Simulated scan of single mutants.
Amino acid sequence: MRDVPRGDKGTRMMKFDSGEAVRPSSWSGRVMIAFAMLMTGGLVTPAVAQDATEDENGQGETASDFAGGIHLAAVFAELSYSKFDEHSDIPNPDKSKTGGFKFGGVVATGSNDTFVVPYLTFAKTDGEGSNEFASIETDSSLAGAGIGVTHFVTPYFRVMGGGEFATGDQDVVFNGADTSKTDIDIYSAYGGVDFDLFAYDDFLFGASDQIGLSHMSANFQPGNSVGQGYSRAWSNGFSLNGTWFATEDTTLGAHLTYVRLFGLETLPGEEPLDRDYGQISISAQHSLTDSVSVYGNIDHVVFNDLYDSTKTVVGLMTFF
């Protein structure tokens, strides 16, 4: 999760995290595992499946089956919708809605143990709120690019890392008339580990731990009380993950995450972020054919003293 805090005259918070379930098939399953781990934004990682080495005819896939060297393994596209509401007991609470689009690919090595996921993002947020002087409406847009890498140390233990940059602007309307523009740049990076704990029948349980850094700079329009500001937050997220392989083609997941923020710096006029909170995620993935899968997830923030936040993601992935 990466936050864009409110600024000098009221900015909005936008979420860019996601998490997807995976399917334990020998080729597309590993691609989905790597993709799910890298699309988590550094906080929520789903449990991942054990490596399958036998196809439906009982013939194992070997390294020679993937001897083509570095190659494009899959492409994906997804839509997201986020809703953010500050609690009513906070002075001048804000609320916002964000729609997003992400497009990218999964690049694999010939040995099929390292995957790289480059992607492009776009998000648009509409928000409303107030301060002691005026009602506030906002219209924000961000476009960015990111990359992540995951490596299978063993079929049951994986390491990952990545980063993202996004840039855009925000129009702020005061009392329906006075408009202010703010330029926004966001940098973020994360790294972590993901591992399986144990399996029982069609269920797999695991855990993950990731650390991340998010930095945002804001250049306010001339005439504001300040000309420039920034926010920064380190985060650590520990997740317990459960996966149910309901059928050969359908996988369901549930993920419980504890998030701890530290090293916080906030924009001028920004309320301090809640340092400890939780996140509950449910996810699903279904293989329509051997080469096409659909996936989705819902993430909801819990035990946060400042705000409620929910994000929904749906996507489509095609394998090569």
Rank of each mutant, 00 (worst) to 15 (best):
S231C: 05
F35M: 02
T125A: 15
T247F: 10
D178A: 15
L197N: 06
G127D: 05
L38R: 02
L197S: 05
N57R: 09
S141E: 14
P5G: 01
G146D: 10
H215V: 01
L267K: 00
P222Q: 08
G99S: 14
S281P: 00
F103S: 05
F115M: 13
S130T: 04
N297R: 05
M32W: 05
S217N: 13
A52L: 07
G127H: 04
K95G: 04
G148W: 04
A177R: 11
G99F: 12
A49V: 04
L261G: 01
E164A: 08
E265Y: 09
F220D: 08
G127L: 03
T266R: 12
F174E: 08
D249G: 01
K102E: 15
G29M: 08
F157I: 07
D94A: 10
G42V: 00
D85C: 11
D51M: 13
S188R: 07
F101Q: 04
S80I: 02
Q279Y: 14
Q210P: 02
D183M: 11
I298L: 15
S80T: 04
D202V: 02
F195M: 11
A177D: 13
I211G: 14
R23K: 05
D17E: 10
S214E: 04
S28E: 09
L273I: 10
P222L: 03
S287E: 15
G68S: 12
L316F: 15
R2Y: 06
G253Y: 01
M1L: 04
S214G: 05
P24F: 01
Q285I: 09
L256V: 10
V75D: 09
W27Y: 12
F198Q: 13
I186C: 13
S239K: 01
G105I: 03
F220L: 09
A246H: 02
L197P: 00
V31G: 01
Q59A: 14
